[in-house]
């Protein structure tokens, strides 16, 4: 487990002081993908750089697996850093080295023999899907491939933790998705803890288990990703959720739906992320003699299953409609709200 206690970083220059990370306390569980989201300047990068002491904390403590990182001397810190992988927005590869040599670099630092290095590098190249590009130079790779090299390099010494600072922010959406898939894959395969910094909510949505929202160096909100999506409390958080889910403007469309589809009931189904609900609509259609008509909605996938809202028109015998709604309420975790009752 990673335990961060009252962590603080103050930057002082001649004319002003900036508290980039302000009294931050946080626990991160083993094996989870923990997201930190915030706007530019919120202190995210400073926070993640404090974790391996690329930035020296002004005060506070960082404990990773019972090891007090903040108390280590230079030599001990170097050893500890070999167990903390890090990947960067701009990849930070050595352009003078090939893919293979880049991945071998942390192994050289750890003093691994040449034969063992070669073996490990090949494993890593297979793991991140770069077979065939071993001898290419970074300048010959696409952004996504460069980040794969970055990931392989970060994993070389079998770290317990992987720190990702805006690892997908320089990539196009498609490449972003493939890199995020790779991170989930690694997280599952190797069971390592991933701490991921981003300003993009869809990244959090796609791969994180828990999320913390940062503003002015503080964590203003944290919790399960789904919970935060479902009930954002702070206005920053609401804005981030809107990035993915759109705004509540859709509600204005409801009156339009009500006036346009005159028959039967109109209900709002709220999916809160359980895979078992995926076949809900077809189950309803099979079990009850009702007509279902999907009117509008937005569903998105999170690590725990689908999340979002659907507006559905239900028509049929009044009793059948009631039974169907009771079924949704009692047998599934989908929240149902009747927007308009049948006459």
């Amino acid at each position: 487990m990673i335990s961060i206690q009252a962590l603080k970083k103050v930057f002082t220059s001649s004319d002003n002081t900036i508290t980039a990370v302000d009294d931050l306390t946080l626990d991160i569980n083993d094996g989870e993908i923990f997201g930190v989201i915030g706007y530019s300047g919120a202190g995210k990068s400073t926070f993640v750089r404090l974790l391996n002491r690329l930035e020296e904390p002004s005060s506070g403590r960082i404990i990773i697996d019972d090891e007090d990182i903040t108390g280590l001397n230079t030599q001990q810190l170097r050893m500890a850093r070999q167990e903390i992988g890090m990947i960067f927005q701009h990849f930070n590869l050595l352009w003078s080295r090939t893919v293979k040599e880049n991945i071998a670099f942390p192994l050289e630092i750890a003093g691994i023999s040449k034969a063992k290095r070669e073996e490990r590098v090949q494993e890593l190249i297979d793991l991140v899907g770069l077979s065939g590009r071993e001898n290419a130079y970074p300048s010959q790779l696409s952004g996504g491939q460069k980040q794969r090299v970055g990931i392989a390099r970060a994993l070389a010494n079998n770290p317990k933790v992987l720190l990702c600072d805006e690892a997908t922010s320089a990539l196009d959406p498609e490449t972003t998705n493939s890199i995020l898939d790779l991170l989930v894959d690694i997280n599952k395969k190797l069971g390592l803890t991933i701490i991921l910094i981003t300003h993009e909510m869809h990244v959090i949505r796609k791969i994180c288990n828990r999320v913390a929202v940062m503003e002015n160096g503080k964590i203003v909100e944290q919790g399960d990703v789904l919970e935060v999506f479902l009930r954002p409390k702070q206005s920053v958080t609401k804005k981030f959720v809107e990035q993915v889910m759109g705004t509540d403007e859709e509600d204005e469309g409801v009156s339009y739906l009500v006036s346009t589809y005159e028959k039967g009931k109109i209900v709002r189904l709220h999916f809160v992320g359980e895979t078992t609900n995926q076949a809900l609509i077809s189950q309803l259609a099979k079990q009850f003699s009702i007509e279902l008509n999907i009117l509008q909605g937005k569903i998105t996938q999170t690590q725990r299953g689908p999340y979002g809202t659907l507006f559905v028109q239900i028509d049929g015998e009044k009793k059948e409609m009631e039974k169907a709604i009771d079924y949704i309420t009692n047998e599934t975790s989908v929240e149902v709200e009747v927007v308009r009752n049948a006459d």
Partner: peptide
């Protein structure tokens, strides 16, 4: 030389 590359080496525990 890119500062980021030096930083990457530091993050790996390089002397």
């Amino acid at each position: 030389v890119d500062k980021g590359v030096v930083e990457a080496a530091q993050s790996m525990g390089a002397k």
